[in-house]
Design a binder for these strands. Sequence first.
DNA 1: AATGTAAATGTAACTCATTTGCATTTGCTC
DNA 2: GAGCAAATGCAAATGAGTTACATTTACATT
Lengths: 154, 154
Amino acid sequence: MRQARHASTTAQESRALLTKRRLKVTKARLVVLDVLRSARRPMSVHELLKAARGRAGGTVTVYRMVNSFVARGILRAVNLRHDHLDYELIGPTDHHHIVCVKCGLIEDFTGCGAGRMAAAVLKKSRSFKLVREHAIELFGTCRSCAGAEPSSKK
Amino acid sequence: MRQARHASTTAQESRALLTKRRLKVTKARLVVLDVLRSARRPMSVHELLKAARGRAGGTVTVYRMVNSFVARGILRAVNLRHDHLDYELIGPTDHHHIVCVKCGLIEDFTGCGAGRMAAAVLKKSRSFKLVREHAIELFGTCRSCAGAEPSSKK
DNA sequence: AATGTAAATGTAACTCATTTGCATTTGCTC
DNA sequence: GAGCAAATGCAAATGAGTTACATTTACATT
Ligand SMILES: [Mn+2]
Ligand SMILES: [Mn+2]
Ligand SMILES: [Zn+2]
Ligand SMILES: [Zn+2]
């Protein structure tokens, strides 16, 4: 809120993010956080490794990293029907994802109405007392992939 | 629609389910379908094997089974944040699941409002054209587990 | 700035879910 | 009942993710 968004502001944010949770600041961790920040989309461990070009440490290190980050609320794990989990930074704006099943394009969206949904479910359910989290993903086709379609007539 | 729901009605339904998709009717397949029908909840491959007590064939067979069933629209794979997929029969009533993160209790719910949600997302999105599917799961605590809680004050 | 300690890392080995190759059996069509 | 593709069983392979353990590093304390 004080300085302009120049230079290594994000590095400072990452430092803060880590120290706040009492995690040590290491080169590898800063790189992974930076990769995620600039990618602006959920990434798998292997995508992180590739994007970091060796600067993120080894495979095991990145696995340990994402696990501890998820445990401490820095990252969220999302299931986009790939055969693995993808990870993204938890930001101030909660959101979900819509995925193109043809090309893999991912877009965020907000306004899922989960509050209403949870309330309705709890009202009807005899067994459940509380909803803590929700997972919502949409799967469809993007404009370019829909164009290249055989023919979804009707 | 003609006979009452006695005896082996479900076996007939399973036979129909299979032959309609040009899948051969085997003992193992009938057993798996029956297990799922009576369990009324999503089950993992290993739960299926256990519940079937040897009558479902070997592990590999059940894996192949659920894969072909999912491919042909007999089963749906659901992700309940276990470390594997669970499978459930696709019925006439589309629904989602709410899971107790303490004890694993699973309950179905309907009325997720995904139609509205999809419409809203498509209206806002520049990239997406069509929504085909959606995954929604709620995670919370059931009454008995909420009771045994340390103290969720406030 | 040197030191101590717990946390983080690297390497290799391991676990566990799921898949694949191949030989054998079985359901179904004619 | 014969013939053939589909289904099965078994063993081996694959691949994601974890664990053990020795080594290094961050960082608090002096
Ligand atoms: Mn996102
Ligand atoms: Mn269900
Ligand atoms: Zn696309
Ligand atoms: Zn419970």
